[in-house]
Design a protein around this nucleic acid. Structure first.
Length: 190
DNA sequence: AAGGATCTCAACCGCGACGGG
DNA sequence: TCCCGTCGCGGTTGAGATCCT
């Protein structure tokens, strides 16, 4: 469909970083006409971008109600809490954090977890055999999975910690308890 | 001061859901 | 009911910035 950039009739599609001029065009257009069907918006605004790209740029960068800058400790806690409940449903999590985007939260989470995983790697390596028989609540199938649904090794095999039975089954399988989150707070140290 | 390693974040990609014709 | 266009989401990548040795 859009895979033929040489097609003479199709306007060539720009990719990569947005220029200031493009930002201005998009912002002005939306200010005047509002958000709409993104594909036609891109064309109507005269941008050589896909509607998808315009949408992303607007939602993640240009929207006037965006809060840019450091995630506050309160927001951090909320993110952790919501991630424990919702998993990687970044857009859902973002809805609870006015002014923050799913992309921002996703990036924030991943870098945090990456850091945390590194910090605890020696432990994880040492206790890796615990996962072999699937005896813990964590289903680690790869390094990536470990990052996404990481369980602090201290709790591995210690399912009894959840014996209160308050954790819904589908959550119990992949996500952290609040205790985990609080302990991570301490590890982060900020 | 230089070079390498690591981190951060904007942007792209692929897929599934949804709605209209 | 099927097909097509569009949207929204989650995962991934790459470039620039920053830190470390």
């Amino acid at each position: 469909m859009d895979k033929s950039p040489c097609n003479s009739q199709d306007v060539e599609v720009r990719k990569g970083p947005w220029t200031l001029e493009e930002d201005l065009i998009l912002t002005n257009y939306i200010a005047n006409h509002g958000e709409g069907v993104w594909n036609s918006l891109a064309k109507a605004a005269g941008l050589k971008r896909t509607g998808k790209s315009c949408r992303l740029r607007w939602l993640n960068y240009l929207r006037p109600d965006l809060r840019r800058g450091n995630i506050t400790p309160e927001e951090q806690l909320l993110i952790m809490e919501l991630h424990a409940k919702l998993g990687n449903r970044w857009s859902k999590i973002a809805k609870h954090l006015p002014g923050r985007t799913d992309n921002e939260i996703k990036n924030y989470w991943r870098t945090r977890i990456k850091k945390h995983t590194k910090q605890t790697e020696p432990f994880a390596a040492g206790s890796s055999e615990t996962n072999e028989h699937g005896s813990s609540t964590c289903q680690v199938s790869s390094a990536t999975d470990q990052m996404e649904t990481y369980c602090p090794p201290l709790y591995q095999g210690d399912v009894g910690a959840f014996s209160g039975g308050n954790i819904p089954q589908e959550l119990n399988e992949n996500y952290w308890s609040m205790e985990d989150l609080w302990s991570m707070q301490l590890l982060n140290g900020d």
